[in-house]
Design a protein around this nucleic acid. Structure first.
Length: 145
DNA sequence: TAGGCCATCTGGTCCT
DNA sequence: AGGACCAGATGGCCTA
């Protein structure tokens, strides 16, 4: 299931390999280290023979956008506890684990304990705010011993 | 080698 | 009109 990990650990985006992306503080989506000036370089030679000017610009902008998306992923990624600690999560793992981690933290708040709060909450004593007793196995509860 | 993950390109759509 | 966003296609890299 979660067999995919660490695969792209040292995967270096070709267009950004020279940029040394400033991951980490990507809360500001506009200023997270991507500028068109620095990346509209002369690649993208795929386009037609001559009319590549507008296409290059669009491609560079899209690369910039992808860069910002990845910065946001990275910002989220570092908030998620992993095992081992430096395990690189894929994007889909980031989304899924962030979701379950938020649920876990919310259960911690509600139950007032960090000892398997999700299991306690779903054991029947306490239902969610919507009255639904969700049966789920919390990765973060299981991790604690 | 197959499958997973990813970056990039590209065209379409929506918004300002 | 130009920019932002999105999804599909494509090809490369990496691991089992």
């Amino acid at each position: 299931m979660d067999a995919y990990n660490t695969a792209g650990s040292n995967y270096l985006p070709t267009a950004f390999s020279s940029l040394t992306p400033q991951f980490g503080h990507g809360t500001d989506s506009n200023s997270s280290g991507c500028s068109l000036d620095s990346m509209s370089g002369g690649d993208a030679g795929v386009a037609g023979p001559r009319k590549q000017m507008p296409r290059q610009k669009i491609n560079a902008r899209e690369r910039c956008r992808t860069f910002n998306v990845n910065a946001a992923y990275e910002a989220l990624r570092i908030l998620i506890p992993t095992e081992p600690v430096n395990r690189k999560l894929s994007k889909i793992e980031v989304i899924r684990l962030a979701s379950s981690y938020i649920t876990h933290l919310r259960s911690t708040l509600i139950m007032g304990t960090d000892k398997s709060p999700c299991l306690l909450q779903h054991s029947g004593k306490c239902k969610s705010e919507y009255g639904l007793a969700r049966v789920s196995i919390c990765t973060f509860c299981m991790k604690q011993k």
